[in-house]
Nucleic acid binder design. Structure first.
Lengths: 225, 225, 225, 225
DNA sequence: AATGAATGAGGCTTCATTCAT
DNA sequence: CATGAATGAAGCCTCATTCAT
């Protein structure tokens, strides 16, 4: 077993100096985790890269896992913020067309490239703490359920089964973005990539008009008509 | 580095008894690797699960890595056989239509479900031996280049850039199949899943007619018309 | 083969505490190596004898071999210092007579008794790192070539072949000293031992006068005569 | 602890075939022991070299040590036979002079070269079974006591202390022979080597006449004189 | 707070030996 | 008798973590 609180950062850095230290540790950790994988990374190496002693590292993090969890927490917060921002934005629109889809994909891609550190990390054989897995799955479920809503309520889509389509749409885009960042960056231009993914997605879900009207607005406008 | 022959099986089992032993080790290894991930799996655990002593395990495998490589070799051979079979089959057809695509996806899905053991395994942060990485990438490249050929030569497709489209098409289907096997099996029926993926792919690459005529035949038939 | 730096001490102790630790490890190692031989000595045993944990041992030495090499390095340095001291001393003399020979043997004996630890150690079937072997041979060659010089240039010696005689003289004295220290200490008094070895050596190389005049001085004095 | 009879060959080979097998094992063992040292030699390797299975090896030898002991036993028997032969021969002589000494040294050298295999083996860090050590020491003591006798009873020698002189004489010759065989063979011719060693020994123990008359004869002849 | 020396459980691997065939 | 598969104790070494300074 593990002691309690083995996964949350040990103390909040309240002085300026400490905050710098913690940041350095996170930075170092994400570098070496990314380069070597989680299990091949030693805490000594992280400390060294961060320019602090191993003792100092353990003042802020109660375990190696805690560093990973902290890193992941950041990732999760950012990801959720992004998703929520995008959703809010879309809901403000009159309709969703090709351009909107392309924009969303571009935003997701950019966000993921910014902390490209996370990619190798949140994939793989690390025996994650269950709590982390739960949250990760929850994020996915959240996004997929929002997608499903859209698919279900927009009348001019041609998906057969909104739930499955949400899985498929989210799953492919998610995977393609990661693949792109990890392996294709040098071979394929970003604009080209986005255009193709957009093509795929749009052709998959849109009817010929290539435009989606969300349910509420559809009803509102339909009533008017 | 490592002594030579640290990755190839140490001795070929020549008695019947030992062939059983080796099989048991592979079976046990794929189970525990799958469940715990590579680095959290100990050789002791593999041996125990296989019902043999640790010494016996090391009579056939010179290292923990070698077991993984052996497992991977199987996977690679099967995967390549599958791909080559499918390609040969397709090349024998007069044209590729929705049904053909669906059939191919189903075959790939089934093949991957049969050794579902491989999934968690061949993804992740394991520091793979370089040779293995190369072969894995090669397999991917092989498949993608075949796809690209199809995209490039079939005139009635609407992909903008055959190379990118090959990446995108292969990448999504590959990822979706793995996601499905790992996470969605209980939620989503197989037929439904295949139908959706087929929809996505067909709408992505086909023109309205939803049928692809390979270049050679197209020319041949086109000439007749 | 082996990773680089598998033979050199891993980190230099920079606190006082750790210098003590390293010394304790060396001391313990030389005791148990001496008592049990190299291959029968476990690193656990060394650590226990040194009163430190196995982890501590490996903070300073990257491998079992490295401990041995470190021990040997000390031995080598001391031995060379001794030899060079003796040579310098002899070269300052007007001539070499029985007393000088006896004194040299006594000094060599004493030096070897001080770190008697080394005796069992630097004999035997340990598969030494090649570098170590080279240096050990080099030390021997160095001493023998100095001896050969003396034999060759001193005119009033009666050795037939200076090179062979150097081998023989050095070889016997070296072996006798080790034998004495290892096995005869309790049976044979030190003075008696030295007297006999001196007898042997002197009678072997000196003419009746039992005195050797080095070439330069001989010529110088001979010229005067 | 060890089971009883862990050191003696398990069964006497009574059939012709078995005798061949045992001989092959001894031959293989002495080769690999010599090349790699005792502790780096595995029983598997011995068996392989001998062309038999490991199971067969253990039918004739109850342990790895037992092989070594068996090998050593041969060595011991040969050595003692040699010594006794030489002694008997010397005792038949009227006196011992330079030629006799040279002849003895040559015989010892040749005998040791014949099974040069033994050299690396019977030196070193092997944790020998106590019984073996005892017998080895006994052989040395036996030879030395015979030498001491000679030194004590021959009146025309000039050794100060016969016991110490026996140690010194035997110790140097023994060591020189081994050194020669192991390291000097290519550099120094055998005849030259023998001449020098003889020089050393003769000058050490003989008076000017370079001839020793054994006590009995001395008395006998002295009485006559 | 920071440092880095110390800890020790536990992982991978070897190899002498046994035993079923 | 021969074979070689199986055994498991024990060795070397790593690395997450603690603690004295």
């Amino acid at each position: 077993m593990q002691k309690k609180n083995h996964l949350v950062p040990r103390k909040l850095p309240c002085q300026e100096r400490s905050r710098v230290t913690v940041a350095a540790i996170y930075e170092a950790a994400s570098q070496v985790f990314t380069r070597n994988g989680y299990s091949s990374t030693t805490t000594d190496l992280i400390a060294e890269r961060a320019g602090v002693s191993i003792g100092t590292l353990y003042q802020y993090f109660p375990s190696k896992d805690a560093i990973l969890v902290g890193l992941w927490e950041n990732h999760f917060l950012q990801a959720r913020a992004l998703v929520e921002g995008l959703i809010r934005e879309i809901e403000g629109l009159r309709f969703v067309d090709r351009e909107v889809v392309a924009r969303v994909i571009r935003r997701a891609l950019q966000a993921n490239m910014e902390d490209r550190v996370q990619h190798r990390l949140f994939v793989g054989d690390i025996p994650w703490p269950q709590a982390v897995i739960e949250k990760e799955l929850e994020l996915g479920r959240f996004i997929k359920s929002r997608l499903e809503d859209v698919f279900r309520r927009a009348p001019n889509l041609r998906v057969r089964n909104p739930r499955v389509a949400a899985h498929v749409a989210y799953g492919s885009v998610y995977a393609l973005i990661h693949e792109y960042i990890l392996y294709w960056t040098t071979e394929v231009g970003m604009d080209e990539f986005i255009r193709e993914v957009t093509d795929m997605l749009v052709r998959y879900v849109f009817t010929g008009e290539e435009r989606v009207v969300p349910a509420e607005r559809f009803e509102a406008e339909g009533a008017r008509a």
